[in-house]
């Protein structure tokens, strides 16, 4: 019974973070901030969903595999977003900074 509640909770969190990432993608003004929102939120969302599925699998090998998958996605998507951030031309990157100061 507790397991069901926990799974529902984790799925809820996962969906919340995915939706937050997508809405952040929609509303943020600048490519860099959109990238930031998307990568972070999706990774945490994926963690919650992978955990929710991992808890309910019978054989623990699958849940270990899910955790490894999440680690892999975490590393690859953060590296990719840093690579993209490096490539966005400078005028756009520091438009945010100019607005602030």
């Amino acid at each position: 019974m507790i397991l069901d509640i926990l799974t529902a909770l984790l799925f809820g969190f996962g969906l919340f973070f995915f939706l937050a990432g997508s809405i952040g993608l929609l509303r943020f003004p600048d490519v860099i901030s959109r990238l930031h929102a998307l990568t972070k939120a999706d990774n945490v969302g994926l963690a919650c969903i992978a955990l929710a599925v991992a808890i309910n699998t019978e054989n623990w090998m699958i849940s270990l595999k899910l955790m490894l998958l999440w680690l892999l996605v975490l590393m690859i998507s953060s590296l990719l977003s840093c690579l993209i951030a490096q490539r966005v031309p400078k005028p756009q990157a520091n438009r945010l900074r100019e607005e602030q100061c």
């Binding site: 998307l38 994926l46 992978a50």
Partner: peptide, 8 residues
């Protein structure tokens, strides 16, 4: 990322 989550 969304595709991977959907697959899981």
């Amino acid at each position: 990322t969304t595709g991977i989550a959907l697959l899981i």
